[in-house]
Amino acid sequence: MNTAPKQTILRISKLKKFFAIRNAWKRRIGWLKAVDDISLEVYRGEILGIVGESGCGKSTLGKTLMGIHKSNGGEVVFEDRPLVNLTRQESRQLSRQLQYSYQDPGASLDPRWKIRRSLHEPLVIHSGLDYQERDERVKSILDAVGLPQGHLELYPHEISGGQQRRVGLARILTLHPSLIILDEPTSGLDVSVQATILSLFLDLKKQFDLTYMFISHDLSVIRMLCDRVAVMYLGKIVELGETETIFNHPRHPYTQSLLAAIPVIGGKRITDNFWLEGEPPNPSALPSGCRFRTRCPNALAICAESDPPLRSDWPHQQVACTLAE
């Protein structure tokens, strides 16, 4: 980790995103709290991992930041500018610097467009460059993501999944963003392809001075890649801190069980000593107090009373558990 003072690039405070649950008559019968009161800071040049199981709200968090979902409260400050109630023009300006990479880039490429046109599109929208200049920029980016020039003339279905991801990345990078939200960037890839894509991320980060928010459910990837990690459970951050600290001394029982669940080759078999039972409760009917208490082995009566906030009683680590020590 660098010793220079950390510069905040993105500050999220008390961000909320609730989805209305409606009955057959479209009357609202409740809220699904996908992102509930999340506060977080992203520092320039780091890779922040957001990890959690499916349905914990990690993708919703990313999409709310991008403005794909409208937030129900809270504040987001990106590069010292608030990200709420922007006019169209302002948000277009900002979206050049804040980019979102979808889970499946193959699906976000137009099947009837050649790769060249897909790569030109963001530049057409966001920059006033003419065709020649755009094409130069596209070619240099294509080089950076390790694709041959010939791929410009191909259609999306003609290239493999790993290459589609590279095209997706190239498309984002043409605008020279400063922060990229990567939503499950390696899901569905084989390990050998995943390895090349991950090392590409690291190369590009150096080359373009990028900051990543890396949303994933794969803890081994997060551990290898990220500087800091936020662990989410049912819309809340339960533990936040530096990767090494969290992976070596997880303090929240949920993080502990999550870490116990990843197979470590050469280590103990988890099938011999995994202890967490049950499944996450229904997110539309959350238990009172701490959300994890229904599955937590150490839960006491006090856990049902109030939802514990993130406590920063430890260096490099914040934990939302009343009983953690």
Binding site: E53, S54, L219, L258, A261, F274
Partner: peptide
């Protein structure tokens, strides 16, 4: 499946 469910 999720990792914790997978482990189970």
């Amino acid at each position: 499946l999720d990792v914790t469910i997978q482990a189970q």
